[in-house]
Write a protein that binds this DNA or RNA. Structure first.
Lengths: 159, 159
DNA sequence: CCGTACTTGATACAAAGTATCATCTGCAAC
DNA sequence: GTTGCAGATGATACTTTGTATCAAGTACGG
């Protein structure tokens, strides 16, 4: 929706795989089957997945997947910056803002599980400022805002 | 330091236990031995502890502690608002700002483990605004900023 | 096509958190 | 005090999440 992924899922997958290929080449990293597979599953799922949900999706078409391999692959994709971990739900999502390093915030609907990735300047500035004020040189900023999204508030009012 | 806890730890413990007692009475909750014990351990530790670290501290003086009981007790203390969970380190800290419900942020030193709890108006406002902009009714805001604190930057420069 | 540095597969394990149910107890009412 | 009992604990077993190790396999530059 946000990027037309729903409109042409095959196209979006192709784009994501190309991006992965480029990033690997740029950084001298290998492009392997599990790396492609995990990226593909995250993309087609279209939502945050736990490592073990991912494992369940991968096994039918690659019986050799294990928890260890899934975690390794996720770590790799996170280092490339194309996957993020949601600490509050212990799950993993595709990055919606591929590009250079950035500080992002997540809004998570506790009803439908939808995850929206934001890049809010005010929050970035305010957190930086707070770090400076308290003498911290920040290198990671976890901002995860949980609530109920507009759709869910409308559809199930007062419940 | 911030509240003089280091200066008189026994006094601080006494204060914290009184606070727990008051809160329990106010809300019609029971004040039990494990609840006192967990609070005491968190206070005397003076830092964030994982549930299992807590368990290891509790067992010597109460062999009946179990993971389940520790988690139950932590959930209770969190509901009272006097303990917070740090998602990024899967650990628990005493609240430094007892009082009504509030939105807090944590700064965590990755070198020494120090945790500072802040209540920053700008961040509170910016996150609220972002939620509104994206149509989310927020009920939880996790903000955990990791980096290196002033002391650690000074003492181990360039490493 | 070769060589090898890096990655994977396989196994085992550690850490974190939850479910269930019988027993016990804090505390309000007497 | 003593008592009754809703609510908490204790005990056990289990699920979920994440890591360590090392032999075997493979992506990719030359």
């Amino acid at each position: 929706m946000r990027q037309g992924n729903k409109a042409s899922p095959a196209r979006a997958l192709e784009r994501a795989l190309h991006r992965l290929e480029d990033l690997c080449r740029e950084r001298g990293q290998r492009l392997t089957r599990p790396r492609r597979a995990v990226l593909a599953k995250l993309l087609t799922a279209g939502r945050a997945l736990s490592a073990y949900e991912l494992l369940d999706l991968l096994r039918p078409e690659d019986g050799k997947s294990t928890a260890a391999s899934v975690y390794r692959t996720l770590d790799f994709l996170m280092a490339l910056g194309i996957v993020h971990r949601l600490e509050s739900t212990r799950s993993f999502v595709l990055c919606e803002h591929p590009g250079g390093p950035h500080w992002v915030q997540f809004l998570i609907c506790r009803r439908c599980g939808q995850v929206v990735e934001a890049e809010d300047e005010r929050i970035a500035a305010a957190t930086e400022r707070l770090g400076q004020r308290l003498g911290f040189a920040l290198d990671q900023r976890i901002v995860e805002l949980t609530g109920v999204c507009e759709g869910c508030r409308g559809s199930a009012a007062r419940h």
